[in-house]
């Protein structure tokens, strides 16, 4: 049986983990490669790096982090942040990323999803959607949640699937950082409509939220950052609890 994936996400800026990772005794808590190895050993099913470096000129630093991580961790690695062209994707894949997550460029130019999936295969193209609720539904925001687009995330997710996306990473901007749980209503609407897997993101504060994301939201994978980084819960605790609930996880 296919297992629900537990994915820690590390924000990386200029080659360093933002805020650091406190859950184990790391020599250098700011080194993404060391944090990645720790998560590898802790039983994470996949890993996600989100590059929030403002300048595109520092791309070589990220590529080096990806390369060193892929040499040490034999697990799937998704990298996102600032992906605008097929050349950006190729450089990340050549460095050792397995999947590339596209956010703003996918929303402003949906044709990019088609070009990218045609060139590299759907399996490595993740479309990241940041959504916020409004009066009578939700809308997509870009540029790190600053720019409203007027686009409906449910319809757009379907469009992305038809254009060749292999997976959707759905982040609720309302919930992100609140520890109130995933937006399971939006998740559910999207997972019901799509054939491709959806990763839930934004808002996890405890293990019950993760369970809700899977059961109520229908997510194929759950992503979380701070609760793992700060050692509030371990991946093992999550997996034990999921097993207790009859959900399928990797041992």
């Amino acid at each position: 049986m296919l297992k629900t994936r537990i994915i820690p996400c590390l924000d990386v800026k200029n080659g360093r983990v933002v805020k650091g990772v406190n859950f184990v005794n790391l020599v250098d808590a700011g080194d993404p490669v060391e944090a990645a190895q720790a998560y590898d050993e802790a039983g994470a099913d996949e890993l996600c790096f989100l590059d929030i470096t403002a300048s595109h000129e520092n791309r070589s630093i990220l590529l080096d982090v990806v390369r060193r991580t892929a040499e040490k961790c034999f697990m799937p690695l998704t990298v996102g942040g600032g992906v605008r062209t097929n050349k950006d994707i190729k450089m990340l894949l050549d460095s050792g990323a397995d999947k590339v997550s596209i956010n703003t460029s996918a929303i402003t130019n949906p044709n990019f999803i088609k070009e990218a999936s045609k060139a590299f295969g759907s399996q490595c193209i993740v479309v990241a959607i940041d959504a916020k609720s409004d009066n009578d539904g939700w809308q997509i925001y870009t540029h790190g949640g600053r720019e409203p687009t007027g686009l409906d995330p449910i319809n757009f997710a379907k469009e992305a699937e038809l254009l060749g996306a292999g997976e959707i990473l759905l982040t609720s901007m309302d919930r992100d950082g609140t520890k109130k749980g995933y937006d399971t209503e939006l998740l559910n609407k999207i997972t019901n409509k799509l054939e491709i897997p959806v990763i839930a993101s934004g808002g996890v504060g405890n293990i019950d939220h993760i369970i809700d994301g899977i059961i109520e939201g229908g997510a194929s994978a759950v992503l979380a950052a701070s609760i793992f980084h700060f050692g509030e819960i371990t991946i093992k605790e999550v997996k034990d609890k999921l097993l207790e609930k009859g959900l399928s996880v990797r041992k």
């Binding site: 296919l2 297992k3 292999g166 491709i196 990797r250």
Partner: peptide
């Protein structure tokens, strides 16, 4: 309910 691609860990 099963998604395509078949993505993730399986026995």
């Amino acid at each position: 309910n099963l998604k395509i691609p078949h993505m993730g860990w399986n026995e």
